[in-house]
Simulated scan of single mutants.
Amino acid sequence: MATVNQAAQTLKALHKPGSPLVLSNIWDTSSLNAIVSLNSESSKPVKALATASWAIAASLGIKDEELTMFQNLEAISHLAPLAEKAGLPLSVDLQDGYGDYIIAAVTAAVEYGAAGANIEDSIPSAGFGKGIDGSLYKLDDQVARLKRAFDAAKAAGAPDFVVNARCDVFRLEDSALSHEARLAEAIRRGKAYLEVGATTIFFWGGPGQGLSSETVKTLVKELDGKVAVILSRQPGGLTTSELAGLGVARISVGPSLYIAALEAIKSKALQMYSGGGLA
Rank of each mutant, 00 (worst) to 15 (best):
C167M: 11
Y258G: 02
S59T: 09
S37R: 15
E120M: 00
F70M: 09
I102W: 00
Q209V: 07
A279V: 11
A58D: 12
A83K: 12
L23V: 14
I26H: 09
L73S: 06
N118F: 10
G277W: 10
A108M: 08
Q71L: 02
F202N: 03
D151R: 07
G157K: 05
E214K: 14
A198L: 10
S37A: 15
P45Y: 13
A198E: 08
K63G: 12
T240R: 11
L246Q: 08
T68F: 01
G190K: 07
S37H: 12
L73C: 08
P124H: 01
S241G: 06
L49P: 02
V46F: 03
V216A: 02
S122L: 06
A13F: 14
A13D: 09
V143G: 02
E195T: 14
G247R: 10
K16P: 03
S267N: 12
L238R: 04
G210H: 03
L194R: 14
F170Y: 15
S125Q: 12
I259K: 15
R166T: 03
L211H: 04
N39M: 11
E185M: 01
L11P: 10
F128Q: 01
V196Y: 13
G157Q: 06
L88V: 00
I265W: 11
Q271E: 11
S267F: 13
T199M: 13
V227T: 02
L73R: 12
E242D: 08
D141T: 14
Y112L: 02
T218R: 14
P124F: 01
L11C: 09
K191Q: 15
S212W: 05
L139N: 13
A13Q: 10
Q142V: 04
R182D: 02
D28H: 13
K266F: 13
K217Q: 11
S178W: 02
A109Q: 05
G131N: 10
S53H: 00
P124D: 00
Y112D: 05
R148E: 07
S232E: 05
A86T: 08
D140A: 14
L177P: 01
Q234P: 04
D28A: 09
G134K: 07
A48C: 05
E185G: 00
S31Q: 00
S53M: 00
I103V: 15
L211S: 04
G113V: 07
K266C: 10
G87H: 01
E66Q: 15
L146M: 12
P235W: 05
Y98N: 06
P124T: 00
S42A: 15
S274R: 14
G18I: 11
S267W: 12
E120Y: 00
G99L: 00
N5Y: 07
D64N: 03
L38K: 06
